[in-house]
Simulated assay, not measured.
Amino acid sequence: MWCDNCLLVLPLRGGAMAWAIIIAIYSIAGGVFLLIRGQYLFFSADEWYVYGGVGIAVAFISVIGLFAFSNRSYIWTRVCKFVWPFVIVLSAVRAILMAVELNRGKDKIVWECQNGGQLWSANATTISTTADTSSSFPAGFCAVGFSSIYTAFIVCLLADLVFQIYMYFMTWRYQKRLEHYQSMKGPFAGGYYNA
Rank of each mutant, 00 (worst) to 15 (best):
F33D: 10
F33S: 13
F33Y: 15
L34S: 09
L34T: 12
L34N: 08
L35E: 13
L35A: 13
I36F: 10
I36P: 01
I36D: 09
R37E: 14
G38E: 06
G38L: 05
G38F: 05
G38R: 05
G38N: 07
Q39C: 08
Y40N: 02
Y40G: 02
Y40T: 02
L41C: 06
L41V: 09
F42R: 00
F42K: 00
F43I: 08
F43V: 09
S44T: 12
S44P: 01
S44V: 12
D46M: 12
D46Q: 14
D46A: 15
E47D: 10
W48T: 11
W48L: 08
Y49H: 14
Y49I: 11
V50I: 13
V50W: 01
Y51S: 04
Y51F: 15
Y51L: 06
G53H: 04
G53N: 01
G53C: 03
V54E: 02
V54Q: 06
G55P: 00
G55L: 07
G55H: 07
G55N: 04
I56A: 02
I56E: 01
I56N: 01
A57E: 00
V58M: 13
V58A: 13
A59N: 07
A59E: 06
A59W: 08
S62R: 07
S62T: 05
S62G: 15
S62N: 09
V63D: 03
V63N: 01
V63H: 01
I64P: 02
G65H: 10
F67T: 13
F67I: 15
A68W: 09
F69N: 13
F69C: 12
S70N: 09
S70E: 09
N71H: 13
R72L: 14
S73G: 12
I75V: 14
I75Y: 10
W76G: 00
W76D: 03
W76Y: 08
W76S: 05
T77L: 05
T77S: 14
T77C: 07
T77K: 04
V79L: 14
F82V: 12
F82R: 10
W84H: 05
P85K: 06
F86Y: 12
F86W: 11
V87F: 03
V87N: 05
V89Q: 05
L90F: 02
L90Y: 00
L90G: 09
S91L: 01
S91I: 01
A92Q: 04
A92F: 12
A92K: 06
A92D: 05
V93R: 03
V93N: 02
R94E: 06
R94W: 00
R94I: 01
A95N: 05
I96V: 14
I96D: 01
I96N: 02
L97T: 03
L97G: 04
L97M: 11
M98I: 06
A99V: 02
A99N: 11
A99E: 07
V100A: 06
V100I: 15
E101I: 01
N103P: 00
N103A: 09
R104G: 04
